[in-house]
């Protein structure tokens, strides 16, 4: 099976602080991976590195066949990163946000509409200003933007936080559908039961390393 992420002994520094201290990981196409670990373990840094936002200082990091030491600018177009912030424009409506991201990615109007429907963004919610939405609703808008971008690799940092029980189940369904459609999904999460529900492989991090 082909590898989407292949990290070997990767070190990434924030200033002089090693956010990743020799991380090694292989993720295959179509897999769902849940990355667990305490705060400061390096989960978010791992996602940011895979998105091409952080350069490896040492080791080998290949994502979607791009060597991040030399080629990380080209990874972004094929990766969808949903970090601890949602990357939305709070003064625009949900539909306007999806439209903006969809247009930048060359998505059709039908694809944008389908993405919003999949995330349950319809009628009054679609025209509501994102700044006035709950955390869970914003997350759904952000995921709809991600769907319109047709990313091959989804990197999600605590995507279930702020969602109610039904919202979490809906998100799980979206993630399963995306994986079935060929997307590879890596999500950082504190919730161990979430991995079981998703049928995901669990990876643990500590001190900037993948420990199991």
């Amino acid at each position: 099976m082909s590898a989407v992420i292949e990290l070997h002994d990767v070190v990434a520094l924030y200033g002089s602080h090693p956010a990743l201290a020799g991380a090694t990981l292989r993720v295959n196409r179509g897999e769902i991976i849940v990355v667990r670990g305490p705060n400061g373990a390096g989960k978010s840094s791992l996602l940011r590195l895979c998105a091409g936002l952080v350069a490896p200082s040492r080791g080998t990091a290949v994502v979607l066949d791009h060597d991040l030491s030399v080629d990380r600018d080209r990874v972004g177009k094929r990766v969808g990163l949903l970090g601890q912030r949602n990357g939305l424009f709070l003064d625009l409506s949900a539909a306007e946000n999806v439209q903006f991201w969809g247009q930048l990615s060359g998505a059709s109007a039908a694809e944008m509409s389908e993405a919003m429907q999949r995330m349950g963004i319809t009628n009054s919610l679609a025209t509501r200003r994102v700044g006035s939405m709950s955390t869970g609703q914003r997350k759904r808008v952000a995921l709809a933007c991600l769907v319109t971008r047709r990313a091959e690799l989804w990197l999600l940092d605590e995507p279930h936080s702020g969602l109610d029980a039904s919202g979490r189940d809906e998100l799980d369904e979206v993630l399963r559908q995306a994986a079935n459609a060929g997307a590879t999904i890596v999500l950082a999460s504190h919730e161990s039961e979430r991995a079981e529900r998703l049928g995901a492989r669990v990876v643990s991090m500590s001190g900037g390393q993948v420990v199991s």
Binding site: G52, V75, G76, G83, L88, F89
Partner: peptide, 17 residues
Amino acid sequence: AADVDDGALESLRAAGI
């Protein structure tokens, strides 16, 4: 302010725009 309030500017960069 509209671009950094919710991390949209970083998302634009991350998305390879």
